[in-house]
């Protein structure tokens, strides 16, 4: 495999400022940074995004697209994990654990894909397309980096589903989200436990409030700005109709 090269790419005149403005105004835009992109060869050029950026939509469909985006991110991450050298050389326990996470997240991703297709019917333009990711900043040969990134993604998933439950109108979607979020929480706990085995980190005070024992719950705008901060998502999309 060719070694990834991190290049600093200067956005074309004024683009950067416009994009920053865009983020600031909506507070919801999910944008690849455009500053640091992994390129497989030196000939890659920066391609400005299309003008018609996908918006997740409103209501139940918006939430399903939102969940689909997060599951795509997780599935893509674990796909790279199980193709990396840390995983191939990991001890059997960690290897199985990460393979399980890969399995579950790919299943979740493809489930949402099927569910949204069923929900939108002929209106296929309302379904979030396949997103492009760039984990250029993560060294998949390094245990600590893989586990630390997994922890962030799993905790993010928990916070996202917990915060999005109230946005769902259909009780069946709510139960489905519940079926998935508890598995994300099991993942988060296990990854935290692997990182720091003899500790309370599995449900640490950094994620569970001490006074009430409540886990994270964040609105889509907060989750997406956290995701933007990772720089992992290349494909732009917006969430203008979600809080």
């Amino acid at each position: 495999m060719k070694k990834n090269v991190i290049k600093v790419i200067q956005p074309k005149g004024g683009k950067f400022n416009q994009r920053r403005q865009f983020l600031k105004l909506s507070g919801l835009a999910l944008v690849g940074t455009g500053l640091f992109m992994a390129c497989s060869n030196d000939d890659d050029v920066y391609t400005p995004p299309e003008d018609d950026v996908f918006d997740l939509g409103a209501g139940d469909l918006g939430v399903l697209n939102y969940a689909f985006a997060l599951e795509q991110l997780e599935a893509d991450f674990y796909t790279k994990v199980v193709n990396g050298s840390y995983w191939s050389g990991a001890n059997p326990t960690e290897k199985q654990l990460l393979l399980d996470l890969y399995n579950h997240e790919v299943n979740h991703r493809d489930f949402f894909s099927a569910a949204i297709s069923a929900a939108v019917g002929n209106n296929t333009a309302a379904k979030l397309p396949t997103l492009e990711f760039d984990f250029g900043s993560v060294n998949f040969n390094d245990r600590n980096q893989v586990l630390a990134t997994a922890k962030v993604l799993e905790d993010t998933g928990v916070s996202a589903y917990n915060g999005a439950g109230r946005l769902l109108s259909n009780p069946d979607y709510l139960v489905l989200a519940g079926k998935i979020v508890s598995v994300e929480a099991r993942h988060a706990s296990a990854i935290r436990s692997v990182i720091n085995p003899n500790s309370a980190d599995f449900a640490g005070d950094d994620v569970v409030t001490i006074d009430a024992g409540l886990d994270l719950a964040l609105d889509p705008s907060e989750v997406l700005s956290n995701v933007v901060a990772t720089g992992f998502v290349v494909t732009e999309f917006t969430a203008n109709s979600l809080p």
Binding site: A185, S189, D215
Partner: peptide, 11 residues
């Protein structure tokens, strides 16, 4: 839901 996911972390 916030309690639910804590129970899952415990489990």
């Amino acid at each position: 839901l916030q309690i639910h996911s804590v129970e899952a972390r415990h489990a």
